[in-house]
Amino acid sequence: MDRFLFRLFLFVFLLGITVIPINVMIDPYNVFHADEIRDNGVEPNKNYIKTKYVIEHQDEYDSYLFGSSRAGFIDVSKLPDGSWYNLSYSEGVPAEQVDTLKALIVNGEIPKQVYLSLDNISYLVSPQYHERQLYRKAFPFTGSLNEKIGFFTSYLDTITTLESLSVIRNYEGNTEDLQRRMYSTGCEDLNADIVFDEENKEAYWATYYSPRVDEAIAEIQEFCDICTAHDIKLTVFTNPMYVTTYEKSINNEYLYFLERLSEVTDYYNFSGYNRISMDDSYYFETSHFTPKAADIIMDIMQNGGNEDEIVIQGFGAYVTKDNVADFINTLKFQAYTTGALIYEGE
């Protein structure tokens, strides 16, 4: 029996040293290097890394910006009345944002104020889809030990690790800059030198996008309820989507989403046909807006803005239950005029 057990444990040990070290050392998604993230050319799991960072540095922050990577170029260091951290990450969706907020609160960090940025991703992407994407997989901060072990075990994916080597080997990153940003504001590279590709104006769209407005609204409702329960000052806004992405979205229930959103929270709207969304200089590509556009939307939310023309276009409109009908009609009228929506009568 002792010999059998010895051989069994030896075998498990051999298996372990074959599988574990290579995955932990290469760690393409930086999950095992969350405290010393490396810029290796592979998108890190920022959802996990950022949340872990702020939980461990609660004294440094009291205000948070939640959103998808589109909100990543909002310079939170310019936001007043608080010590801000940008918790945005690739394709962040409301259900995950609820979990992140709960994780902060359970770990003793009750935010003073929160900005929640929403757009078409918020209702087109199911959170379950991220469970199989290692760079978006949510860590169960409030989950069981079994779930937490399951999370790390999924990163012992030798096949993906070895496949990532072809990217890592040929990439020259700037680890110092990435660490500086991740461990200070959480923002993306605000000095990114990316010029909008005039040849590629197609809407940013993934094949797995599928409208789930009612589920997303319920998740946003939960987020709002948590903020109310903990006296967190919440500001909700919609991102200024590039015009072609916006057009495709309004043909996929985006206006219904905006209408339903007003039932759970008031919000600032920055989507639609306006001087920003139709100007390529405010975008890196058809998905992400630039820090210049981010500064404008933050200014409007902080100070009300001072360009009436923009407000008339719906850009920066403060939408409530009382004015949502007029607001939606404005956006519909814009869409009928451009032909993005076909008028079918009332």
Partner: peptide, 17 residues
């Protein structure tokens, strides 16, 4: 043989999730 089988099984099982 045990190790090869185990590594392949583990690798694909975790990879496919």
């Amino acid at each position: 043989i045990y190790l090869i089988f185990s590594i392949v099984i583990l690798a694909y099982h975790i990879h496919n999730g």
